[in-house]
Design a protein around this nucleic acid. Structure first.
Lengths: 112, 112
DNA sequence: GCCAACGAGTTTGTAGCGCAAACTAGTCTG
DNA sequence: CAGACTAGTTTGCGCTACAAACTCGTTGGC
C-alpha cells in the first residue's frame, strides 16, 4: 500500500492518539516508577532505586514531578534513626497510567 | 503488597526495560510517524501532516532525525510542477519499531 | 505583466527537560 | 574526632521538541 496526499486517513492505530500521549507518564523513568508503584501498595525509595536502576537524583526529581501532578504521594518516616521515604500511587495516578496503557495497547497489537 | 528496601525484585514488567526504551522511537511524534510508515509502503508529506496532526516544521525535523538514524528514507520528486516529498521505513526502522513494541507489550498487558 | 496569495517544506530561536554530578544532613565505625 | 556511609535533594548544563519565521517556486487576480 502506498499513500498519496489526502487520501482517507482510515489507516494507522490512531496516530493522533500517539501524538497526544501524556508526557508526564510517557517519560521512561516515570513510566517505570509508576509501573512499579501500580503493583505494590507502598514502595520505598531504595527499592525503586534497585528495581529501576535509576540514580537517586533522577528518582528524586521524577517523583517530585509525579507528586506535583498528584500522581503519587510521598511519606517520610524514621525507621530507628534512619530516614525512609516511601511512595504510593494515587487514584489520579492510576487513572493516568491506565489511560496511557489503553492508548498504547492499540500500538502494540500486531498490525492487521 | 508493600515493598521495603531490598526485597527480591521479582515484581514489575521489567522496569529496567522501560528505562532503556529507544528514545528515538519513543518520542510521540516520531512514534506516530513510524507507525504510519510501518503500515504503508510509501507515504507523502501531506498525508503524514493530515494523519498525525503535526505541523510541517515538526514533521520535517522529526523525519530528519529518523533519516539520520537510517530508520526512514526520503524521496523527492515532482508531480507536475509541484514538489512532493515521500517517505519509507527502512528495515532498520522496522526492526527498531518492532523492538519498541515488544518492550512495551509487557507494560500494556493487564498486571497479573 | 505584476503583485499578492498559496503550497511545500526547511531553518531558526527558545523554553523546558532530563541527566549526572555536587551537595546536605545525619549516622556509624575505628 | 575523623572519615566513611546512608538517604536523599539541589544544581548546572546540554539537548531537544515545538512554534514561528523564512525560502523558493507556482498560481490567481486584475
Amino acid at each position: 500500500m502506498s499513500v498519496a496526499g489526502d487520501e482517507a486517513p482510515a489507516a494507522a492505530p490512531s496516530a493522533r492518539a500517539l501524538v497526544a500521549l501524556d508526557r508526564l507518564v510517557h517519560e521512561p523513568a516515570r513510566l517505570a516508577i509508576l509501573t512499579v508503584l501500580a503493583e505494590a501498595e507502598e514502595v520505598e525509595f531504595r527499592f525503586l532505586e534497585s528495581v529501576t536502576g535509576l540514580t537517586k537524583g533522577n528518582i528524586s526529581s521524577h517523583v517530585a514531578k509525579l507528586e506535583a501532578a498528584d500522581y503519587v504521594t510521598v511519606t517520610k518516616r524514621f525507621q530507628g534513626r534512619k530516614p525512609v521515604t516511601s511512595y504510593r500511587i494515587t487514584a489520579t495516578g492510576r487513572a493516568a497510567l491506565d489511560a496511557y496503557r489503553a492508548a498504547l495497547s492499540e500500538l502494540v497489537r500486531p498490525p492487521t
